[in-house]
Design a protein around this nucleic acid. Structure first.
Lengths: 206, 206, 206, 206
DNA sequence: AATGAATGAGGATTCATTCAT
DNA sequence: GATGAATGAATCCTCATTCAT
């Protein structure tokens, strides 16, 4: 039997541990199927301890889901700043960032969580729309507008549906989450192919 | 006092009613948060009656999720047959079918369900991969190969990642499911713009 | 082991059984210390069954406490009707009724319950004031006024504090509840002595 | 940041503070519904500190309830000494003392506590019977016997049920506790009226 | 076949108590 | 001594499932 150590710890750190454990659990089984005891066990603490940091399961979930995405946002924001780089490079960097920070991380389960629990947690959906989507779409729109102005787009109409740029990222997440076990999807190729489709070749056609 | 109606009914029809009710419930709240009583109530029958048709909640879910997608598949399959029509038209027809049969139907919640409950029901995921994805990808691949051969694609490399063609459809579902309440997405434009990006203009100028 | 029989039963009867069991439990240990399982066990049913009849513990308690007193009230009311009988006889009959229907019944624990849980259940207190106390006081006041008019009272001022008439009844309950085990209180004598103190002797000598 | 005050304090005083806080809490919500943390908070100390002074919740309760009543007892005892004063005066003084020291104090909740928790804490009930009731009844009996001998009582039989004298006090507490918010009871009048009923008028009729 | 009352395992939450700091 | 984070037993309540009618 492992010793129960009553390990006291810095509250901020403990909180973070719980959030990490909770994220793993929720991502694995969804909100309803996750037991608070699972979360506690995963965090290596007792059931009751979770409640010292979060008032109830719902709040734990909400704070969790709200907190996971925020950090990435900053980096993305910086991307639009540099006007000099070609739009394709910028979008490419975005995909790379997405791969590194989401797709190849536990965060890849985030979409599933939000999608799955959205109807039960409108607050979360609203948060994501307001904090992430809105900003993301805005950034992409600027990027595309700039690209269109420079003649970098094969089809300038894309500017009006910036969501299209996100579509391959969505696909990558969903495929990875659901079907990677059955058939591998080369996400890099997915992104690159889409970029090649979206933007005129660098060399500049005749 | 209202009479207790013990409406006896054709088993097959009853079964279908239960499945419909179950789909509505599961789509709305997910597997765990749906109570068998909800399903029964929605089907207008008593709790116990559900168990006369399905052995338990899990089986109800699995049979349900497996049954919803199948009907569409046939139509899609027919599409690849007609070699004469241009690939763009075929893909366009696919998007139209998708819109009509999925996006604008209750079936649009299917993705959410599969994504959400996937980890808990590998059988379902496996079923979808085997029955739907595999076939869908194969069809698209044929379509794209044919298009590439005819020079209809701006970027022939797309043939290697047929999933790209599905990406806008995914985006449309997810946006509709999550954010339509906050901001409208013109899915037709999304699809058309993507088509315009994917395929060379019809006029096929130099 | 007694067989678990899944005994189905008339809802009204079941409800009554639960209320009886609940009353016994609450009276014995108070609201907080009573477990719903205790109530169920005492009623000879399963935990969950209680919840088919009462939405939660609080409601069970409230409905219970509200329902216990009502039946007695009717009888008391009838008492004031007969103008012909002497007030002393009427009050004496009231004490007798009180003894028979409250003091020597499980209902004797009611005061304890109300007093104990009053602050936690203002609804209950309000109910008792409105439904029982108000009416009781009114009846006694009429009785005393009549008695005063007829010169039956040693001290007519009693009319202004009808609560005084209830005081011996309270004492009897409290003594019985708390100290009867240590020392017997002859409640009949308590009542009779009070009556002899309150009313002038019948013979009404000079 | 406010400094953590580790106010060390005279143990006896600390103990008293805890008892006071505990009394307030228990009186307000009863034993079960009072959390040790409430008590600690009310005493302005940390949860753990309570346990430095009392081994557990039960003991805290018992010591508390046992300690509250004792002080009054002395005064009451003195009352019987003075043989010279009329019994009515003595009883009147007792009511006055009761009003001042119990009814108009937080101690008025004591009865509720004892009554409510009696069945769970026989020790407490026994203590009250032994230490308070026995002595109180004895005193009243002596007073009444003396009064009877002097012809001060309208009904000498009262000597045999000295509890009758306590009844108005009980009524005053219970009414005050439960119904004062709905309807005021003039306790002074209640006591005075009872005294007028119990004792022959001072002037001494022919 | 259909019903819905009954069951009881399961999970969220609370809180008395302990103990490392 | 004092603190309050940590623990886990205890309890409310839900809901999948059963079964007598």
């Amino acid at each position: 039997m492992a010793e129960k150590k009553r390990e006291r710890r810095d509250p901020e750190q403990r909180r973070a541990e719980i959030l990490a454990a909770a994220f793993a659990c929720f991502a694995e089984r969804g909100f309803a199927a996750t037991r608070m005891e699972d979360v506690a066990a995963r965090a290596g603490i007792a059931k009751g301890t979770v409640y010292l940091h979060f008032p109830d399961k719902e709040r734990l979930f909400i704070e969790l889901v709200s907190g996971v995405a925020s950090p990435i946002l900053g980096e993305v924001g910086g991307m639009v700043q540099k006007e000099t780089i070609p739009a394709r490079t910028a979008v490419s960097m975005f995909y790379a960032l997405f791969k590194r920070e989401v797709l190849e991380t536990e965060r890849r389960h985030l979409l599933r969580l939000i999608l799955a629990e959205g109807p039960m947690f409108p607050v979360v959906t609203e948060f994501y729309y307001r904090e992430i989507i809105t900003k993301g779409v805005a950034i992409v729109r600027v990027l595309l507008a700039r690209a269109a102005a420079r003649g970098e787009l094969r089809n300038p109409a894309v500017v009006d549906v910036p969501q299209l740029v996100m579509a391959p990222a969505l696909m990558s997440i969903i495929w990875t989450t659901l079907f990677e076990g059955y058939e591998h999807l080369d996400t890099q190729k997915l992104f690159d192919t889409f970029l090649d489709t979206l933007f005129v070749p660098e060399g500049g056609a005749i």
